[in-house]
Design a protein around this nucleic acid. Structure first.
Length: 304
DNA sequence: TAGCAGGAAAATC
DNA sequence: GATTTTCCTGCT
């Protein structure tokens, strides 16, 4: 199925798919090829239009609009976070980068795998888990695998998962899959709540009580931002912590800042994470997540 | 709050 | 080719 979509608002496909939000997209020549929604979507940007080729009927223009959130007001969000020169420089550099709306389960599972890994490695782990446990299908003569559902992984042994190169993440993924598969995680209810409550629910009520291991504040924030439309969510990883320390010292306590100066990869305690998160959200406002994404890109771009 | 382990691969030297 | 670092969480 082929279709072309006119873009009514700013969008940059390259920045969006290369921003560490998604792990199943690959650039091959002019096209980006992604496994989404149990099928394949090929996308190519031609100025103010997106050319799309999809493997199935359910991946049509309304899916693409929803996935890339094309009907949302990016300019308004960016205007909302344009509080200073650091962030406006990042916005100018990566203009058109959008937050995407991923499948919730896939997003959760992917970020459980993201601990202590870099983006290429996360892509590899997700690809391997999909290849081993996801439904195989063909498109244009190429073989692909859908992302496995929670039920597909819940019954798999941790040793089998480990053999996908997951290491210590294997039991975490298994337990998260089992919990979701058993219906312990009410995605709809999380989605219906405002950011702070949704986060509390995700972390303490549903994910706490030792039901889900491997989902801490950072992973929860990523999942809320990339698959629950919680634009206020501001995941704080090592890159972002460095950016805050350097460019927004007033948003970070002096003690933490001096620790980061001594040790660039010092880790934030839960209490420190909560404090910085709150300060940053207070500063950037309801679209803080966009600020996080643009600042992350800028930090990665300059290697600082 | 501090310190550490956890497994493997990418990045860096 | 060895060392360091990596979008982190859980435990002590």
């Amino acid at each position: 199925m082929e279709f072309t979509m006119p873009l009514g608002s700013p969008f940059n496909l390259d920045y969006t798919l290369d921003s560490g939000q998604v792990f199943r997209w690959k650039r091959t020549g002019e096209w980006w090829v992604g496994v989404v929604s149990g099928g394949v979507l090929k996308v190519k940007q031609e100025g103010d239009a997106l050319r799309c080729v999809a493997s199935s009927e359910n991946i049509g223009s309304s899916f693409v609009t929803s996935y890339f959130r094309l009907d949302e007001d990016l300019e308004g969000a960016l205007a909302g976070i344009s509080k200073d020169e650091t962030v406006t420089n990042a916005i100018e550099r990566f203009y058109g980068l959008r937050l995407v709306r991923q499948d919730r389960w896939e997003c959760l599972a992917s970020f459980v795998l993201a601990t202590n890994a870099n983006i290429p490695r996360i892509q590899k782990m997700v690809a391997e888990v999909s290849a081993r446990f996801g439904r195989p299908f063909e498109f244009e003569g190429q073989g692909y695998h859908a992302f496995p559902g929670p039920g597909d992984l819940a019954g798999v042994s941790a040793a089998e998962l480990r053999s996908c190169g997951l290491g210590y993440r294997a039991p975490f993924l298994k337990r998260v899959a089992a919990s979701v598969s058993a219906g312990h995680v009410d995605f709809e209810r999380v989605a219906s709540l405002p950011y702070e409550e949704s986060r509390r629910l995700l972390l303490s009520e549903l994910f706490g009580k030792k039901v889900l291991l491997g989902v801490g504040p950072k992973v929860a924030d990523c999942v809320l931002l990339y698959s629950f439309d919680k634009d206020e969510s501001f995941p704080i990883d090592v890159w972002i912590a460095r950016v805050i320390s350097r460019s927004y010292p007033e948003l970070m306590g002096a003690a933490l800042r001096s620790r980061l100066r001594k040790d660039a990869r010092a880790k934030l305690s839960a209490a420190e994470y909560a404090r910085v998160s709150s300060a940053v959200r207070g500063y950037f406002g309801e679209y803080a997540g966009y600020a996080q994404q643009y600042l992350f890109m800028a930090a990665r771009d300059t290697g600082a």
